[in-house]
Amino acid sequence: MLSADEAADLIEAIASRQDRAAFANLFRHFAPRVKAFIMRGGTDAEAAQEVAQETLIMVWRKAASFDRSRASAATWIYTIARNKRIDLLRRSARPIDTEDWLVVYAPEEEDAGKSVLAGQTYTRVKELLEGLPKDQLVVIQKAFFEDKTHTVIADEMKLPLGTVKSRIRLALRRLRQALEKDES
């Protein structure tokens, strides 16, 4: 296992001295996990591996833009993997470099003190996901794993749209409570 701090250290080592050993460590930890995550949505192993590979290459290129005070390594890598999935699997006709969220949404004063998203986030979010009622968890998982909108999820699960919306809102309320608990 790689702790959140260790993972952030590795990204910073890439940024400051193009550290290949740090990249190899990061790759060993995250590439197989990104691949597994992408495969959950039904993507075949080969395409998922390509997404994982391209995600980690992007981590190398953009390492200097990583800001450990705003996001954990896993969170940042998730956003890169999500964008790579969009570029490689959905937009094959017209690949574009989707923007990096840490850069586009540079923090403003209003955000100061709100970034509890690094450090212990993983443990708290994991606890939250484990504690969610099954019907809420399924909707959240389908969105992330299968890259589907809530409308499509409602359709597939043969649920009224309002039911899916209220499950999402309940899950988000719990998420907010879990993440803001330690802030005060």
Binding site: A31, P32, R33, A52, T79, R82, L117, V125, L175
Partner: peptide
Amino acid sequence: TVDQLNAVGGALIEGEPEALLDDAAL
């Protein structure tokens, strides 16, 4: 809210069991 949701994405990736990667990938 989007930051928090991205953290959920991060936690889901972190919680994945490792998929086999072919040896030459690294």
